[in-house]
Amino acid sequence: MLLLAFGIISVALVLWLLHRMNNTDAEIQKLALNLSFIRYTMWLLGQVVLSSLTVTRLVWGSRKELKPTIGKLPVNKVPKKSRVLYANSITLTPGTLCIDIDNENVTIHALNEESLHSLKRGDMADKVPGENKGVS
């Protein structure tokens, strides 16, 4: 009972602090925990496994296969809210690393051309959840 009360107090305190922070920096984030987000997470897990295998092959294989490249991708298709999620997904999948993100482009460092190409095809950009229906 007492612990429950403390729990409620804690949550209230955190919400109040967050409210103050939101008022100060005026950067409010909303993350919709809906079905599409969960589906995206599952898909991302699969991608992580696949690309980990690629990097593992590169680590244990010879150095010749290693052809690091750098490239820019447009992010116009990705809604503004989801861009950070997009950038972090790129970094999370081994083999591709997001170096920079601005309003138009993400700069990506990839271990080989193959992984850069698969990003260019735009699977991940299409799958990132968020209001894809053009509001952005």
């Binding site: 496994v49 150095r63 290693l66 999948t93 081994p94 690393l97 170096i99 460092h109 271990l111």
Partner: peptide, 17 residues
């Protein structure tokens, strides 16, 4: 791995999967 950026990839294997 030969340079810093490629090493980040290697570290991210341990971090993610």
């Amino acid at each position: 791995f030969p340079d810093f950026f490629t090493r980040v990839h290697a570290a991210s294997v341990t971090d993610s999967i």
